[in-house]
Nucleic acid binder design. Sequence first.
DNA 1: CTGTGCATGTAACATGTTACATGATTCA
DNA 2: TGAATCATGTAACATGTTACATGCACAG
Lengths: 185, 185
Amino acid sequence: MIDKKETAAGKEKPLKHVLLAGIHNEPRSGYELTKWLQIVGQHCWSVEHSSVYPALRELEQDGLIQSQRAPGTRGPERSIYSLTDAGLEKLRTWVAQGSPRPTIKDEQMLRVLCFDLLPREKALQQIREVRAEHQAQLDFFLARQAVLTEQQLGPLLVTRRGVMAEQAYIAWCDEVADMIDRRPA
Amino acid sequence: MIDKKETAAGKEKPLKHVLLAGIHNEPRSGYELTKWLQIVGQHCWSVEHSSVYPALRELEQDGLIQSQRAPGTRGPERSIYSLTDAGLEKLRTWVAQGSPRPTIKDEQMLRVLCFDLLPREKALQQIREVRAEHQAQLDFFLARQAVLTEQQLGPLLVTRRGVMAEQAYIAWCDEVADMIDRRPA
DNA sequence: CTGTGCATGTAACATGTTACATGATTCA
DNA sequence: TGAATCATGTAACATGTTACATGCACAG
């Protein structure tokens, strides 16, 4: 009931800041941003390409980014976007602010909540599969981490987050398997 | 392009399963489910009450849950929902299936991606605040963990997940602070 | 000459939030 | 008697996905 005008002033949709952040790290096309979101976005913010392109046009109309046509390495021409001065300032202001808590949608966790409905063997198998997926994701983040230098502070820290988050998920899977093992069927 | 009819058969919105799971753990009213979602939902699936009530009515129409009026402990009467046999079967079938990967929306992580735009002191302070929030959440989950027995397998495992996830987030915050410290301003 | 990946876009739909509404009961 | 919590609900809005659509360019 307090801040209405105050927050409304700097109020932009998160997606726009996601894109500004992605462009800030390096100039990118809509397509590249989409790919980037599928990787880095894992532990931040991921959307489909159908949301990316309209948002980019809005950002350009707001004067926060500018585009430049360039030939595709393979394939057709594309628009490469880069931050304008206004965009950089916008981003700088935003970065300094506080964030709402992360939100998570994890159906698997929900299933575990009902694991008493599953025969022990089924549950164990399911957890083994989940563990394998997160292990693959961990390997991916580890490989990324290896090629990043401390110069790229942001990307490195976010990749570290990916590594640690996946390690924690895997450790949890092991605990779950253990606890199911030591239990009457 | 493969499974169209196959998946379409058991296709229900995740929210419905969330509620079935919540009711399965113990019969609850819409209000209680909402509160429950704000706690347990943290690491699974969280929604506002305005989504809960309509979904409950749909579930009841589908014959998956049944309601019973009861006097509120404090306040007006409420409807307590419990699973029907059909609901339990539905839940059991669903639990055995595979899940899509978890999705995360974390604006803070996005900000860290642009930490090179922030003076060192500002960044450190922000991370300290984030750490404190997650520490509080960790304490909360630890307290919950202490009162749960191994009889309540699902809730215990999910709480464990909360504990481990928060610990990992905190450890990451410490790494971030460290890395910012050991760096030219 | 066909499939795969590059590259962009639109429209209908699904899902969930914010804000608005209502009203009971209890405690200070 | 007024604030806080319990308890439920609706409607407008925001946001994002799925599916549909198009077309280039290169590799086999």
